[in-house]
Write a protein that binds this DNA or RNA. Structure first.
Length: 507
RNA sequence: GCCGCGUUGGUCAAUCGGUUAAGACGCCUCCCUUUCACGGAGGAAUGACGAGUUCGACUCUCGUACGUGGUACCA
């Protein structure tokens, strides 16, 4: 079953995919799927100076990892291809020209220097950032002032030009945002936005309108930072005669820094020690890699669950949702208006919950891959499965499976002798010397028998069992962690247990 | 500066005029566990401020403050 609902995610391929971007994609996707509609990925690569090769594939990979499946995209194509704006250049120009001939846009020949001096000259204390608007446009070098012949002459000699939208005066632009309700703006405060750049590429303003129209987008989700230019886009929809087909807007609240103020940025992640990008991103120039949620050990289910709850709530006292549940429950009405500070602790909690609630079988492929990467030899898959279920409760990030599980397969890389030192004495040393023999005598090697033998010896030696269990654990595991120690001994086997005890030295 | 948007505990948040103002994260205490977790019980902690509307305001209106975004031939 399908409906006519079509949403899109339209990032520009300039680098790592920010978690705010993923959330925008997620909400668009959830909304589309809830209404049996389509979700489209469109790449907004109109700024050639910021284009980063590989970023497009990377974005597609991030979405795929998150389970945010696209119905149409540059890579898979679709009925409204191409989905890369750089490949749609001619389309935009045609509409820009249409606006010029209608009198809704004009050629502007101002050089960057001229624009700068205009801004400089008009700058006052009460107006620190002058705009190219109805007050100044008649003083600039554009087809509004120049004679038609002059314009044609300039065009004839290939003078660089841009096409600017001519904002109508004295209009109130009001529109209904699905999240914020009615929003209105005074057109006199708007500037004449560039629609078509000197290099022939459209700006976002033109491209978003043209593409949303041509691609039949019905609901447009984007970040709140676009709210100030929304009236321009609405004016453009009207000028192009497409008002009836205009999508419904939803301006999502921003994701803010956990401390201080402002939008969450890549820098904040580095500063505070958590990822900002969905997946690892390596800068082509510096070769620097910025860590992603995937690589530090997040489960995609947990990642999107966390993101979904950052700005939306179901209204129930429930926070754990699968993608399918999110699709079913998601509603625009329940999206918050205010920005949300990102809380990495809470993000980790989601991941921990997802690991705990996932079946060992589900976790298995990832853990196995992780172990292979870490060169931890897994003798039997069954054993790994057993270990996953034994330790998953104490793994917050997938990578925790390394510390929590590797000692089952190999001797601990290091032994936390400091943990046993304070209470260590000769009696205990003797106990462990004898323990080898006692353990060796066990015929049926299981946790119960090991524990019984261990406790009997402790009784004979008159040492508290509790004081012996910690050293025993450290010998087997390497530190003060892991499940029941006798269970561990059972799994690693008699020989290995005895060997690790014998290898133990307090240095 | 101007314009837009926002404002319930430290954080995420429920409430859509009448509640002892949910729940979660984090924090603290205790139980369980002679590791670390998990689990369980409890605790501290919230409506920015000021007017108004109303029998009644966290909820509606206005103002103030604060926060945030925009103010590019970037998206």
């Amino acid at each position: 079953m399908t409906s006519n609902v079509r949403t899109r995610f339209a990032p520009s391929p300039t680098g790592g995919l920010h978690l705010g971007g993923v959330r925008t994609a997620l909400y668009s996707y959830l909304f589309a799927k809830k209404h049996q509609g389509q979700f489209i990925l469109r790449v907004e690569d109109t700024d050639q100076s910021r284009y980063v090769s590989g970023a497009e594939q990377y974005i597609a990979d991030c979405l795929a990892w998150c389970g945010i499946n696209t119905d149409e995209s540059p890579l898979q194509g679709g009925p409204y291809a191409p989905y890369r704006q750089s490949e749609r250049k001619d389309i935009y120009k045609q509409y820009a020209l249409q606006l010029v001939s209608q009198g809704d846009a004009y050629y502007a020949f101002d050089t960057p220097e001229e624009l700068e001096s205009m801004r400089h000259d008009n700058k006052t204390a009460s107006n620190p950032s002058p705009q190219y608007d109805h007050q100044v446009r008649m003083k600039m070098k554009n087809s509004l002032n120049l004679l038609p012949d002059e314009v044609n002459a300039l065009l004839a000699v290939n003078t660089p030009y841009v096409i600017r939208y001519k904002v109508p005066q004295n209009e109130f632009i009001t529109f209904n945002d699905m999240i914020r309700g009615e929003i209105s703006n005074d057109s006199n405060l708007l500037d004449d936005k560039v629609l078509l750049k000197a290099d022939g590429m459209p700006t976002y303003h033109l491209a978003v309108v043209v593409d949303d129209y041509l691609m039949k987008i019905t609901h447009a989700f984007r970040g709140e930072e676009w709210l100030p230019s929304a009236p321009i886009h609405i004016l453009l929809w009207k000028a192009l005669g497409w008002e009836q087909a205009m999508p419904q807007w939803a301006h999502l609240p921003l994701i803010l820094k956990p401390d201080g103020n402002g939008k969450l940025s890549k820098r904040d992640g580095e500063r505070l020690g958590f990822p900002i990008f969905a997946m690892d991103w390596t800068d082509a120039q510096t070769r620097e890699t910025t860590k992603g949620f995937k690589e530090i050990g997040f489960l995609p289910e947990a990642f999107i669950n966390m993101l979904a709850m950052l700005g939306w709530s179901s209204g129930e006292a429930k926070e754990l949702f699968s993608k399918e549940e999110l699709i079913e429950k998601f509603s625009i009405e329940r999206v918050h208006k205010a920005g949300a500070k990102f809380d990495f602790e809470k993000a980790k909690w989601y991941n921990h919950e997802w690991i705990k609630h996932s079946a060992a079988e589900t976790l298995f492929p990832q853990v196995k891959a992780l172990y292979e990467k870490e060169n931890i030899a897994v003798q039997h898959d069954d054993l790994l499965l057993k270990i996953i279920s034994l330790v998953k409760d104490r793994c917050v990030l997938m990578n925790d499976f390394i510390m929590q599980g590797s000692y089952f397969f190999q001797k601990p890389a290091s032994i936390d002798t400091e943990a046993v030192k304070p209470k260590w004495n000769e009696e205990k040393q003797l106990f462990f010397q004898e323990l080898s023999n006692v353990l060796d005598a066990i015929t049926v090697w299981d946790a119960v028998n090991i524990e019984t033998a261990f406790k009997e010896l402790a009784l004979i030696k008159n040492i508290k069992v509790g004081e012996l269990q910690l050293p025993f654990r450290v010998m087997l595991v390497g530190g003060k962690y892991g499940p029941a120690v006798f269970q561990i001994a059972e799994i690693i086997g008699k020989d290995e247990t005895i060997q690790r005890c014998n290898d133990f030295k307090l240095s």
